[in-house]
Every structure is written in C-alpha cells, then in structure tokens.
Design a binder for these strands. Structure first.
Lengths: 149, 149
DNA sequence: GTTATTGCAAAGGCTTTGCATTACG
DNA sequence: CGTAATGCAAAGCCTTTGCAATAAC
C-alpha cells in the first residue's frame, strides 16, 4: 500500500483547483502532460504514462483527456489528421503543423497578429459567442518541383 | 449508352484544366461540390451525388475528394470532429465552426486580418515553406451558466 | 454504504486497402 | 491492348460505450 509513486503536490493541487479529483490514474496522465508545454495524442500519453502506471487503461486515458479539456487543463487542437492532439500550453498562442511529419509546435502570439476579433464577436449577435480561435500554419518540406499523383 | 446525365461543360473543362480526367463519377462529385461554395463531408457528397449516379461507390468518393484536394479543386478543413470537411471555396478566407451543430460557414477575409505571415514565412528558413494557413473561429450557443461534468 | 472512477472488451464511425472488373486512350 | 479508374468487401485506425469490479468519500 506504500508503493505509491512520488507525486507532484503542486500537480495534485492544480487538479483539485480545477475541480478534478486527483486519482492515481489522473495524476499519472497529468504528470505526462501538464508539467511543461507539449502536444500529444492519446496514444502517446498512454505509452508514456505506462512507465509509471502499467495497469493504466486506454479508455481511461481517453476519458481523462476529455475531462481535462472540459476543466480547462488542456486544449484540443484541430490539426487535421487521424488522432486528436492535446496541448498543455494554455497561454494564447498559435500553431505550426508540419504536414509531412505530423509534428506540432507552438508559435508565440506575437508571431502573428489577428485583427478584428472583437468586431467579430459583436457581429455574432446575442445567440452565439466565440468559444475559441485557432490559427494553424501548415508547413511542409520545401520541394523544388511537384510530383503528380 | 445515351442515358448520360446533362453535364456542365465548364465543369468538365475545369477538371481537365486541373489535370483531372473527367470520368462520370468525378463529374457527379464535382457537380455536387464545385458549382458554388460549400462545405461537405464525404458522406454528404455521396448522398447528394447518389441522385444523379446511384451506382457511385463510397470508396470512389473518398479517393476522388483526395484527388480534388491534390489538384487544387478543393480545400480540406481542419475543423475537429469525426469527419473531414471539404470546402469548395478556393478564395482566401477564414471559417466559423459551430461546435454545437458542427456547421461550418465562411468568413470573408476582411473579417479578420492576420499580420506577420510574410515574416513568418521568412523565419521558417530554407527547408520549410508555408503550405496553408487556417483560421478557425469556434463559436457556440451562448449559455448563461455552465454545467459541471 | 453510496457515489465516482476504472478496466475490459466489444462496438462504432470514418477512412483506406487489395483485388478483380470495367472503362478509357 | 495497356493503363487508369471503379466497385466491392474487408480491414484499419481512433474513439466511445456498457457494464462489472474497484476505489473513494
């Protein structure tokens, strides 16, 4: 019963502060994602969390990631591609998506300035509101010529 | 052999101009998507195209949509959600995504201005280039209070 | 003890693949 | 005729679901 992994108390408090009960599974997942800004799919989270928590189940990872998003601990990124990417960087920022490798990286807010958000919000009327705005710059390996498919 | 649907010659020429051989299946799909700006999933395209081409197969729709994207006839939208959304509006513009209904709508370029693209392109170096930039404003029904899950 | 969380395995949705068949140049 | 495109059905991947077992308060 004392074979508990060393846990980050600050992480535990952070989950509690967001209204998420810090179970062992959730702590293991939080320990993978939350300590530093990163972008990961559910599968990647599962693999890394497995090191500290071998019994951790895939379905638990999926539902926990959704829980974290609902409670403001993570962001879901609409990069296209099969798997959903979760972002632990909660500061406002944009994204670079490498279409060749699938790699996602952060772009500081200052790199791109988006004008007109406030006017847009007002233009939506009283029934709609802006939930989020995503700016994704898709980049690819520069290629001299293009092959036909 | 003469039971051919009436086809838009301009559409046929447009496919040819893009290097896409205008087969009957492709014409049926093009007729659904290309005449006017719209956002559709593969399944929606299949259903509509079925009216003019009942034998049209699902797999053909999927591969044709990809073909159209590769040849610049369609854009793929990274709205998150199960199904890929294709956009037949090729002019530069942004998108509004209603997270409650899944509905996608166009936002004129002027509605939001993104500054810094050129500098960003230069900052990528010589190995990478910008393939596309997507700005997606996620909107939702305005709700007075928020439920906890 | 009662409620919330987890594991497991099965099902679900969207998309791709392989191969035989058909249409096209 | 040879190449490209299509249909069909099966498999693939990512994700969700239902329910019994477990853990938390």
């Amino acid at each position: 019963m004392s074979a508990w992994p060393v846990v980050d108390l600050r992480l535990r408090d952070r989950l509690r502060a967001c209204g998420v009960m810090p179970t062992r599974q959730r702590m293991a997942i939080a320990a993978v994602l939350l300590p530093r800004p990163c972008h990961m799919t559910a599968e990647q989270v599962l693999q890394q969390a497995h090191d500290d928590f071998p019994e951790l189940c895939r379905a638990t990872v999926y539902s926990t990631l959704q829980l974290f998003v609902r409670h403001g601990l993570l962001r879901e990124l609409p990069v296209d591609g099969a798997a959903t990417v979760y972002d632990s960087n909660l500061d406002p920022h944009h994204h670079l998506y490498n279409v060749d490798t699938g790699e996602v990286s952060d772009l500081p807010t200052e790199a791109l300035r988006v004008l007109g958000q406030q006017a847009l919000g007002r233009a939506l009327g009283e029934s709609l509101e802006v939930a989020a705005m995503d700016v994704i710059v898709r980049v690819r390996q520069r290629r001299p010529a293009r092959a036909t498919a």
